[in-house]
Design a protein around this nucleic acid. Structure first.
Lengths: 228, 228
DNA sequence: GGTGTATGCTTACGCCGTAAACTATGCCAC
DNA sequence: GTGGCATAGTTTACGGCGTAAGCATACACC
């Protein structure tokens, strides 16, 4: 058979998948489509990738991998180092919206993920956090990076919202929603708000370490619902 | 034709969908499967639901709707009220893992969502937050509820992880990952850790309002990547 | 030349959401 | 009653999906 100009490889498949997701979004990424993109039948891809899940995992790892470049983490104190990682991850994820869906939904442990976790953890340990608090802190940082970013990215734009939001803008629902009616006109961009959140989290971690954060709210166990 | 014992209604379809998702997860919820669950052909469902997306949205609204029961929000100060809502939402979501996927990925604005946003916003405004800070605060609270919870729920259990994690437990990777090797043995449950996060966030909001949270990390603009 | 192995193609299976057309039932005005 | 019409559910079918199984080609090495 006439061989294609360039042989298929795992890396070529991965790069094509990244490119396709970048240009047309995750939902356009099917094996058949990816095949035609590479001038090849869908089943040919399975010579280089065990299945689609594995391909998605490889895409995730490609994303997370450069959160911790050697030069990306400055030689600052723990606050600066953690902030730098958080901002870098945020920027990477917002630049590729589909990456958020993949990274948050597929928490596989790869090299990139481990290096990222290690960087956060050592920064906390060196800053005097106990192992237990460092463990919590990693989750808090990770939850903020992944969770807050995802929430930001998926927050519906005012344009895409329904009639009710227009009514809110017009002040027609002030009686029902007085608070939102006041605040809905506030605007700000994601980077700025994320920056605020990063500062809040890092400050909170420091206060946690120093015992300055009195528990006020209890464990919340009383709010557990009995679901029918 | 022999009519089924009970006529199909939008609500019966919705309840069956919730039950199916509860018992077998979101991926089991197909229109065909839902039909057989109700003793009916798949296409019959379309008399009561415009399409599957609308059904999922209805499921989301059913979840979010009881985050703000009238009795659920205690007559406490703003911290207590926000903490109560956050804990209630967290408990609801963790009790139904599939709900996390739906609620975070489908940010449609329904009544439940608005009441939830309103409760948070008014609590902040009454506590003396400026409209701008209240707007940020809503996003911070919402991001924590949705994002941190989602991150917790999807965090892979040690049992489900690969060889590398076992190696970490055994201390075989101490050279490569000294930090994680120390902290990986720490354990805690989700409710406890979430409680910590809630306290951290509420404390941070108060400090934000009072101008006690100095911006330390900059906007992070310098970390924006130029993606190939 | 012959053989082994890697690579890609063809076909097919069982899922999915849902459009379109059809059938069976219940109700109501005449 | 009876004709007409709305409602509820069925049947069939279309185009998509991931991928299992088997076949065809092409190259490397003897």
């Amino acid at each position: 058979m006439a061989r294609s100009r360039d042989a298929l490889t795992h890396d070529r498949v991965l790069q094509a998948a990244l490119a396709l997701a970048d240009s047309e979004g995750l939902e356009a990424l099917s094996m058949r489509r990816l095949g035609t993109e590479l001038g090849v039948e869908a089943m040919s891809l399975y010579r280089h990738v065990p299945n689609k899940e594995a391909l998605l995992d490889a895409m995730v790892d490609a994303i997370v991998h450069d959160w911790i470049d050697d030069e990306a983490v400055p030689a600052a104190d723990w606050r600066g180092r953690i902030a730098a990682i958080m901002h870098r991850a945020h920027a990477t994820l917002l630049a590729r919206p589909w990456a958020i869906e993949l990274v948050t939904v597929r928490p596989r442990v790869g090299d990139g993920r481990l290096r990222y976790a290690e960087a956060i953890t050592t920064a906390l340990l060196e800053a005097g956090f106990t192992p237990q608090l460092a463990h919590h802190g990693l989750h808090i940082v990770d939850g903020t990076v992944m969770g807050f970013t995802a929430q930001q990215a998926r927050r519906p734009s005012a344009a895409a919202l329904g009639d009710r939001v227009h009514a809110l803008y017009n002040g027609d629902l002030t009686a029902d929603y007085p608070g939102i009616s006041v605040t809905i006109r506030e605007h700000h961009d994601h980077a700025e708000e994320y920056s605020l959140m990063v500062d809040l989290v890092i400050d909170g971690l420091a206060r946690l370490r120093d015992g300055l954060l009195p528990p006020r709210t209890g464990s919340g166990a009383s709010y557990v619902l009995s679901l029918a």
